[in-house]
């Protein structure tokens, strides 16, 4: 009866403490100027993607309803010019951000789940199961990912899901190796030995001690993986392996290339999607690095 109260208040206090920790991390994050710039840029792009229907009429995506001329340079009406079908590049760019970000995030989720599971298990277990997992990871790491992605995309057909899956499947080994290294280092920490002394089994050691201590690294790594996934999506779409029914920055670059925008000097068709990809990838990388610094005090000290 008397204990019920302190227990509840302690849960509240714990929540308050977690909030305080979050605030402290945010303070550290804010101290990194490039991280903040990256975050602002990302938020802008995400807002654009979310509010695409308000920013640009989806009608503008349909070839049959195109209003402009062919490959018109930027003008008052078409700020970024038009494509070979007379569609506004700006409209394509805004709607393309949706697909690029969506595929990037989906692929990352797939990659993180596989990478984290494999990394945790190959780091934590010993003997042949760990060895096999590690070999598989290495195998995936050394296969040239582009041909693998090409083959998978060809076999599985071209759809948003396929492309996310393909990217996820080819980009997890780096995550797995990172997590594995982290787990191996945590496994040697005295607090794991203490857990064993107290009688904790493998599952508990893993879930209560290893996982909470690698989570921040997973989190920071996620943002870096998104950057890679967006780049890969662009590459695959550029090679014509994207979903043909949707516009993404990669598919814009592919069409631009196909109609010879480079040779005809239609820079407005190539530069905007290219620049967008670079900026978004850079922004994710900046945020990821800033997060890594927040979660890894050793990196902070070395600066």
């Amino acid at each position: 009866m008397s204990t019920a109260n302190p227990a509840r208040t302690s849960a509240q206090l714990l929540r308050a403490r977690r909030m305080a920790a979050l605030k402290a991390n945010w303070k550290l994050f804010r101290a990194s100027r490039w991280g903040v710039i990256g975050l602002v840029v990302l938020v802008l792009f995400i807002l654009v993607a979310v509010f695409a229907p308000l920013l640009a009429d989806p009608e503008g995506l349909q070839v049959t309803k195109a209003t402009g001329g062919i490959l018109e340079p930027p003008s008052k009406e078409y700020w970024l010019g038009t494509d070979e079908n007379g569609r506004s590049i700006l409209t394509l760019l805004i709607w393309g951000s949706r697909i690029s970000l969506f595929v990037g995030l989906c692929a990352t989720v797939i990659s993180m789940v596989i990478g984290t599971l494999v990394g945790l298990m190959s780091g934590f277990f010993e003997g042949w199961p760990a060895a096999i997992l590690f070999r598989i990871t290495e195998w995936f790491l050394v296969i040239p990912y582009l041909p693998l992605a090409l083959i998978l995309a060809t076999v599985m057909g071209r759809s948003l899901f396929t492309i996310s899956f393909v990217i996820g499947l080819t980009s997890w080994p780096a995550t797995a190796l990172l997590i594995r290294a982290q787990v191996l280092s945590i496994k040697e920490r005295p607090y794991l030995e203490r857990a064993r002394v107290l009688g904790a089994g493998r599952w508990r050691q893993m879930s209560r001690h290893v996982l909470p201590n690698v989570t921040p690294m997973i989190f920071a790594n996620t943002t870096l993986t998104v950057a890679g996934a967006i780049l890969l999506e662009t590459t695959l779409s550029f090679l014509g392996l994207g979903d043909p029914t949707r516009i993404s920055w990669g598919s814009m670059l592919e069409s631009a290339f196909a109609v010879g925008a480079m040779t005809t000097g239609a820079w407005w068709y190539i530069v905007p999607p290219g620049v967008c990809v670079v900026i978004v990838v850079l922004a994710f990388t900046l945020v990821g690095q800033a997060l890594e610094e927040v979660f890894n005090p050793r990196l902070r000290g070395s600066r």
Binding site: L14, R17, P190, Y191, R194, V197, H209, P212, N213
Partner: peptide, 14 residues
């Protein structure tokens, strides 16, 4: 009780 008191506590546990 292990040798390294500082390292024997999980930094993420109260």
């Amino acid at each position: 009780v292990l040798q390294d008191a500082a390292g024997s506590l999980n930094p993420r546990q109260t």
